[in-house]
Design a protein around this nucleic acid. Structure first.
Length: 352
DNA sequence: GATCCGTGGCG
DNA sequence: TCGCCAAGGAT
């Protein structure tokens, strides 16, 4: 074990997090679910989702035998929904190809959808304490500073160098603790802005610390202006106070989730109504709701909601991706966060 | 290599 | 209000 790992572990013994939900009863399944949820997502956000998910799907078998709708429902609001689709698909593969037993070697794990190099290593390290090397955003930041590695995550050379460094520092003992330790260090001390170098256990050996500003590492990624898109969301509500939702295509943005009917900006109500089999004659009122902007990592989406009261759905098309929902049934399927907010505002919120 | 995929928090 | 980005992986 090198001095770096020793120092990080000593710091962890005092300051590290050891009471997270997925840190007790570290079965491979629980560790797996937590690592997927934690991808690009902060601990505080994950905790309630993790608890609900494990209560509903306590085992690989339970997850595999569930419907995708049920899985997406528990993922509602967590984002990056491909994670949920991959998790569900992987559970089926584990039942079929691994007799329902989670594999705990990196090669078998990486063969599963949604598990890459770092996540596979994290599962092995946390569930078995065997040697495996992770490289997430926290570790990248810590190592880029300690070794003053120039560049950023968009560059292959930068990543290759960091993987080498990460491998070199990974100890042969206490791998689970070390893995948690270096992530905690990055999350709580070696933060992107205002790092707490004074309290850092490896400040003495940190090259960036000895230079001008440790915050210069990693280098910021060059950014472009985000492109903009605009859509209309039509929310049809009938006299029985049900609303019409569409299930989005299985891949792409909010894949597999339910949402108001989405059409291009400027689409007329009558046109949208016709497309889903709602007779134009049954339209009672049309309300333009306040538009709102939803920002993603790579584009802005301007959403213009239109609520449409209709007398009855005279000739609803036989489309499997359309369904009328009672207010109480909305909680039983997966929806995006903006869809949830809008429905609460326009639909559920109007209930007496 | 470049792009796509969510959300909430923060300065 | 806005840009930035956090326990990445798939295409």
């Amino acid at each position: 074990m090198d001095d770096f790992a020793r120092s990080v572990l000593a710091w962890f013994d005092v300051h590290g997090r050891k009471d997270l939900p997925w840190q007790r009863d570290r079965t491979p399944y629980r560790v797996w679910v937590s690592e997927i949820m934690l991808q690009q997502t902060q601990v505080a956000t994950v905790i309630p989702y993790f608890e609900r998910f494990l209560a509903r799907f306590p085992s690989v078998a339970a997850l595999a035998s569930a419907g995708l709708d049920d899985v997406l429902q528990l993922w509602t609001g967590l984002g990056y929904y491909a994670r949920a689709r991959n998790l569900h698909r992987a559970a089926g593969i584990i039942v079929r190809d691994h007799q329902g037993e989670m594999p705990v070697d990196t090669a078998a794990l990486e063969a599963l959808p949604g598990i890459g190099r770092s996540t596979a290593a994290a599962i092995v390290a946390q569930a078995t304490d065997r040697r495996a090397t992770i490289l997430d955003g926290n570790v990248k930041r810590v190592l880029a500073r300690v070794h003053a590695v120039a560049g950023h995550s968009g560059e292959a050379r930068f990543l290759a160098r960091l993987w080498d460094l990460a491998e070199e520092h990974t100890p042969n003992e206490r791998v689970a603790d070390y893995t948690q330790a270096i992530m905690d260090l990055g999350a709580t001390l070696c933060t992107r802005s205002r790092p707490g170098c004074e309290r850092c256990p490896v400040a003495a050996r940190c090259v960036a610390r000895g230079m001008e500003n440790p915050q210069a590492f990693p280098a910021p990624k060059p950014r472009r202006r985000l492109p903009e898109r605009a859509v209309r969301w039509f929310l049809f509500i009938d006299a029985a106070d049900r609303c019409l939702l569409m299930q989005r295509p299985p891949t792409g943005l909010w894949g597999g989730l339910w949402s108001p009917l989405e059409y291009a900006d400027g689409t007329a109500v009558e046109q949208a109504a016709l497309a889903v089999g709602v007779g134009a004659a049954s339209i009672l009122s049309i309300d333009l709701e306040p538009p709102f902007r939803h920002t993603f990592s790579h584009f802005h989406l301007d959403i213009e909601p239109v609520s449409v009261r209709i007398a009855s759905a005279t000739s609803v098309l036989d489309r499997a991706d359309l369904r009328w929902f009672e207010p109480a049934a909305l909680g039983s399927v997966g929806m995006s966060a903006p869809a949830v907010r809008l429905l609460e505002q326009l639909f559920v919120g109007r209930e007496p």
